[in-house]
Design a protein around this nucleic acid. Structure first.
Lengths: 213, 213
DNA sequence: GTCTATACTGAGATAGAC
DNA sequence: GTCTATCTCAGTATAGAC
C-alpha cells in the first residue's frame, strides 16, 4: 500500500489516514486541522500545502475510500442490466447494486461510512458528489428509469431524492432505539431493510393529493 | 403578538426574529452571532445573557415555530385514530397527519422549514427533537404501529428512521433537478409525493437478504 | 519542492463595570 | 439588563529554512 518511503507520500498519507480516522470518530466540523496535524505528527501548514483547505482534504479522504466502492457499483449495475436484457431490471436488484458495495465498505470501516452519511446530510458533500459520484449517479438513475418504465420522469427524480435522504440518515449512525452495541456495525442487515423499504416506495402508486385542510 | 413594549421582551424578540430570518437565509453554521446582533441592533453579549449559547438560541427559534405545528399534528392524529375506531388507521392518513402541518407552515415561511431540514440532517437537532418533539414522535409511532399491526416492531422503527431521513432531505431544499424557481416553495406537492413514496415503503413486504457477494 | 514558524481574521464565550 | 473588553480556538495565509 505504501509504495515507498518517499517522505512526500509519507506526510500526505499520514494526514489522509489521520483525517479519515478523526473525521469518522468526531465528525468533520468537530475535527480541527490542529487535531489532525497533532495526530499525524506533521506541521499545520503542511495540510494547506498538500490539500489547499480543510474542505479539499475532506474531498481527498472521501475520494480515496469511495472510488473502489463506485467501481464495484458500476460492475454490479452492468451485471443487473445484462441479466435483464431488454426486460426492465428488478428494482430491488438495482437498489442492491447501489447499496451492497457501500455496505461491504462499511463493514470494513464503520466510522468512515457514518461520517459520509453525516457529510451527505450536512450538505457538505454536494460538491464532492457532483465531482466524484457523477457516473454512478447517472448510471443508477438510468437503471431505475428502465426498471420503472411507467413512472413519470419527475416522479422518479423525486423518489431518488427521497432515497438519498433515507440513505444518508441511515448511514449516519444507529438510531436511538438500537440499544445493543452489537447492532452498531451491522450495516448489512440495515441495508437489507432499507432496500425493501425503498423498493416498496419506488413501486408505490402515485397518489392524488387529497383536498383537506 | 408583542404583548407590550417591555424592553426586555423587545431585545429577546428582536434576537429571535433576526436569528430565524438569518438561519433560514444562510443556515445555522454560516450565521454568526455577530451577524445576528448587527441585524437586530443589539449587543453581542445580550445573546448570551438571554439564551446562554448559540445552540440554545437555535433551540428557542425552533421551538417558537414548531410548537403550533406539533399541536396541529396531534389534532390530526386524534382525528385519524377516531375515524378508524378499532380498525387499523390507513397508513397514508397517519403520514398526512405528520406531514401536512409542516407543509402548511412551510408555505408561510419556506426558508425556515429548509433550515429545519438542514438542522435535522446535520444532527444538530437531536437534542431539540428529544426535548420538544417527544410527544409527537411517540404518538406518530403508536399510530403507525396500529396502522401496520403485522409489521415487527424492529422493522417499524427502522422504517420510521428511513422516513425521518427522507423527510429531512426533502425539507432541506429543492434538489438539483428542479430548474424552475416556481417549484421552490411548493412544499405541498412534494409532500404529496413523499407521502405516496413512504406509504409504499411502510407497506412493503420484508425481503429476505439475498446470498450475494 | 517540502515543510516550519508565525501571524492574521473571525468565531463563540465570558468577566466585570455600569 | 446591558455593554465593553478580552479570552480561546478555529481556518487560513505567508515568509523563509532546508
Amino acid at each position: 500500500m505504501n509504495q515507498s518511503y518517499d517522505p512526500v507520500i509519507e506526510t500526505k498519507t499520514k494526514i489522509l489516514d489521520t483525517a479519515e480516522r478523526l473525521f469518522g470518530e468526531r465528525g468533520y466540523s468537530a475535527t480541527s486541522l490542529r487535531d489532525i496535524v497533532a495526530g499525524a505528527g506533521v506541521n499545520l501548514a503542511a495540510v494547506h500545502y498538500h490539500f489547499g483547505s480543510k474542505e479539499e482534504l475532506l474531498d481527498q479522504v472521501v475520494l480515496r475510500k469511495a472510488a473502489p466502492v463506485n467501481v464495484e457499483r458500476l460492475r454490479l449495475l452492468d451485471q443487473v442490466e445484462a441479466e435483464a436484457g431488454t426486460a426492465p431490471p428488478p428494482v430491488d436488484q438495482v437498489l442492491e447494486a447501489f447499496f451492497l458495495p457501500m455496505a461491504a465498505a462499511a463493514e470494513c470501516n464503520p466510522p468512515f461510512v457514518r461520517m459520509m452519511g453525516r457529510m451527505l446530510a450536512e450538505g457538505l458533500m454536494m460538491g464532492i458528489v457532483a465531482k466524484h459520484f457523477q457516473e454512478v449517479t447517472r448510471r443508477t438513475q438510468s437503471a431505475l428509469r428502465r426498471a420503472l418504465p411507467q413512472l413519470p420522469e419527475e416522479e422518479l427524480l423525486w423518489r431518488i431524492h427521497f432515497m438519498i435522504g433515507a440513505m444518508a440518515h441511515t448511514m449516519c449512525g444507529p438510531p436511538d432505539f438500537t440499544q445493543r452495541g452489537a447492532d452498531l456495525g451491522d450495516f448489512r442487515s440495515r441495508i437489507g431493510r432499507l432496500v425493501s423499504f425503498l423498493s416498496g416506495g419506488f413501486q408505490a402508486p402515485i397518489r392524488e393529493s387529497r383536498e383537506e385542510q
